[in-house]
Amino acid sequence: MIRREIALEVNGRSVHASVEPRQSLADYLRDGLDLTATHLGCEHGVCGACTLLLDGEPVRGCITLAVAAEGRRVDTLEAFDEDPLMNLLRQAFSEHHGLQCGFCTPGMLLMARDIILSDRVASDAELRVALSGNICRCTGYAGILRAISAAREAWQARPHAATGPA
């Protein structure tokens, strides 16, 4: 079996591992590191359940190779237990019923956080488009959209919003 050594940073910790080149980053995190927040809903790039951050940017974990993450920083939902914006999102998702079965939720949260921080989205229609690569089969999106809007408002209204880092 072909294997490659890799070193990368996962959720703030450096890890070294020997992986098969064919292993996806999502599979490595799940099977190699037992980080199971990254879900697999399609394994061909469409559903967004496997969304994670690579060097701070959301990518598909299912079609990113673990070997290609050599030397990079990877963050999964597990890294955000204390993150203030993620906690606002959590509260809003619960309040607005933004999840039912919870399978799409980790991917949704990471995408939502990126949408709020990057400030690319102005209208409800744009928010829908920005979220169009994350599929939820349960909620019909209504609660998710409301939750993200509410969290965004709370985030922008927080004290020191202009200066505080994410």
Partner: peptide, 18 residues
């Protein structure tokens, strides 16, 4: 508000593959 939300919102749901 739902009791089941918390585990999923922290990525700690337990699906069979987990």
């Amino acid at each position: 508000r739902r009791k089941e939300d918390r585990r999923h919102l922290f990525g700690r749901g337990q699906f069979t593959a987990d």
